[in-house]
């Protein structure tokens, strides 16, 4: 045998062909048996899911509904030998349950439970004839394993897709370049900086210098918890590149810890114009731009 150890069941894979070692006439009989016992076996399965503490994020009605669909799709895959419909179902199931916080081990768990519930039912039916039971299992096991793999892989792939999507969304969100005045843009950096994000941030800032015709850039790193030498050098490069385009850079919000790190690392900060906080940074920027901010008199003094 050994077919069940193949990596993942792919679209259109032929489940029946994996049973070549068994008796091809047995599958239809098996399918008929599983259809006949549908109500009982489905309930048994749903009960064992609850007992095992799986899918706790879903109500028992929801578990039962999904269990019914999975059961029917499962038996259909056994019958037709094609996992295509099952793959499709696994994908839509994953789409529905991933936002609910269902974990990979739960999906794997329920599919393996179904495999066990069905196998036990086959034991019961064929226990009087050991030879026949062995042939039934030969036909059932590879197909069942392949189905389990299909569902699990479908779930993991969908999860990875969601994670990738979220990473992109976070990346876009996390580096907003804001124009606060004519010729002045602010880049507030929030959260940890790694090499990739630092590079992306630099590129985005440089483009916005051009589109906003920025003369002064304030980079606020109050929200950055820590910095290593690679990221520090990225920051220095950002300052250098901005200057090459003709913009002045002011860095604000350097914490005492980060300042110590930078000094300890020996990062060359001679060209960096640092101002304590964001407000001071904006004031310095306005001075560079030739603005003078005058507070208008409070109304009661007029």
């Amino acid at each position: 045998m050994g077919t069940s150890s193949e990596p993942a069941a792919r679209a259109g894979a032929d489940v029946a062909s994996t049973t070549s070692g068994g008796d091809s006439t047995l599958l239809p009989e098996l399918v008929a048996h599983l259809r006949e016992r549908r109500t009982q076996l489905r309930e048994e399965w749903a009960r064992r899911i609850t007992e095992a503490g799986l899918l706790t994020a879903m109500t028992s009605d929801e578990v039962f509904n999904e269990a019914t669909s999975v059961y029917d799709n499962y038996v259909e895959a056994l019958e037709t030998g094609s996992v295509e419909a099952l793959e499709e179902y696994a994908r839509s199931l994953s789409e529905r349950i991933i936002p609910r916080g269902v974990e990979t081990y739960e999906v794997l768990g329920i599919v393996l439970l179904l495999r066990d519930v069905l196998a036990r039912s086959l034991f019961e039916k064929y226990q009087h004839d050991f030879e026949l039971l062995l042939r039934v299992l030969d036909a059932y096991e590879p197909a069942a394993n392949r189905i389990a793999l299909t569902v699990a892989v479908g779930f993991v792939e969908e999860r990875e897709r969601v994670i990738r999507q979220q990473q992109e969304a976070i990346r876009d969100l996390s580096t907003p370049v804001l124009q606060v005045r004519e010729r002045l843009v602010i880049l507030p950096i929030i959260g940890a900086l790694d090499s990739q994000r630092a590079r992306q941030l630099t590129e985005q800032l440089l483009r916005s210098i051009r589109t906003n015709r920025a003369k002064v850039v304030v980079i606020d790193i109050t929200g950055v918890p820590e910095i290593d030498s690679t990221v520090a050098n990225h920051l220095v490069q950002t300052v250098d590149a901005s200057r090459l385009m003709g913009a002045n850079v002011i860095i604000t919000g350097l914490s005492a810890e980060i300042a110590l790190t930078l000094v300890t690392l020996g990062v060359d900060l001679s060209k960096v114009n640092a101002v304590g906080d964001l407000q001071g940074g904006i004031e310095e920027a306005e001075r560079l731009l030739g603005y003078e901010v005058i507070r208008s008199q409070p109304a009661d003094q007029r």
Partner: peptide, 13 residues
């Protein structure tokens, strides 16, 4: 004057 963003980035690299 007029250095493009990509050119500035490449220069510092």
């Amino acid at each position: 004057v007029g250095m493009q963003p990509e050119v500035a980035f490449a220069m510092v690299q």
